[in-house]
Write a protein that binds this DNA or RNA. Structure first.
Length: 269
DNA sequence: TATCAGGCCCTAG
DNA sequence: CTAGGGCCTGAT
């Protein structure tokens, strides 16, 4: 168990940010995260955030997962103080970070997310993991399910995942799993690609469009300049950025700003 | 009962 | 290339 003092890091906000659907609050303030076949609990204390894992596992995995080596204070400082909207959004969401999640998990997750609501996305993913994911056990005996590998989904018929409530998105996931298994889509290569190339490659997946591709680039490949535009962001752009989002000013970390805006829109009263 | 949710595919024009 | 209908399901 290790304790880390970090600015601009709030597990609760990350849990509610909609970038990860395998993190949830167990009891008040205690969160669990599953990534690949790993399991972690974490919570905030006065001394800092407690990660219930070894130093080795923290260093080799979770530190990067939560992007803790990155100083978000620098991003926050660069926000134009005359931009009242973004200032307010960032102030509300400043505990959010861009996670570094698994590529395959993000492809499937954001295929499922389209034209869907957060509550159902959670249900879909839970059911899919319980049905097709490997059963695992944490050190304390907690049973959990890993995310299903492409190999587990590729043999299914197009509509098989409707039983997991995916609806018409079932065939998107199954066909993409087949493309990955066959080598038609090479995840290892995509990880090496720069943002534009990776996005272009991801767009070849059946069911992956502009918005989903950008989410994958942002949350798996950690391309912080990716700026997914969904209906909510579209509305904000139309309302507050008629002359366009200040891309120059935020170049290189536009995705961080997108997340602040997204979180704010989801949680403001 | 109708609408729409963190879109995308496909077909017409 | 752009516009618009269709798509699973469930919350409102």
């Amino acid at each position: 168990m290790i304790t880390i003092k970090t600015d601009h890091f709030d597990p609760g906000q990350i849990c509610d940010s909609g970038q990860c659907f395998r993190m949830k609050e167990l009891q008040d303030g205690i969160y669990e995260v599953i990534s690949r076949d790993r399991y972690l609990r974490l919570w905030q204390q006065e001394e800092g955030t407690v990660f219930d894992c070894s130093q080795e596992e923290f260093d080799s995995y979770w530190s990067a997962y939560f992007d803790l080596q990155n100083d978000y204070g620098i991003y926050l400082e660069k926000i134009n103080p005359r931009d009242a909207y973004l200032t307010q959004a960032a102030d509300t969401a400043k505990g959010v970070r861009i996670l570094k999640q698994d590529l395959w998990e993000m492809i499937v997750t954001f295929l499922i997310s389209q034209q869907n609501n957060i509550k159902r996305i959670h249900r879909c993913i839970d059911m899919m993991c319980e049905t097709y994911g490997k059963k695992c056990m944490a050190a304390d005996g907690t049973v959990y399910y890993a995310f299903p590998e492409p190999e587990a989904l590729a043999p299914l018929v197009d509509d098989a995942l409707m039983t997991c409530n995916l609806g018409y998105r079932s065939k998107y996931v199954v066909r993409t799993a087949r493309a990955v298994q066959s080598g038609e889509i090479d995840l290892k290569k995509i990880k090496e690609m720069t943002y534009p190339k990776a996005k272009e490659e991801l767009l070849k997946c059946y069911g992956v469009g502009e918005k989903v591709a950008d989410c994958i680039c942002l949350f798996a490949l950690h391309d912080l300049d990716a700026f997914p535009v969904d209906t909510h962001i579209r509305q904000v752009l139309d309302e507050h950025y008629r002359r366009g989002f200040p891309n120059r000013r935020y170049k290189g970390f536009r995705g961080v700003m997108q997340q602040y805006i997204f979180y704010y829109e989801l949680h403001k009263k």
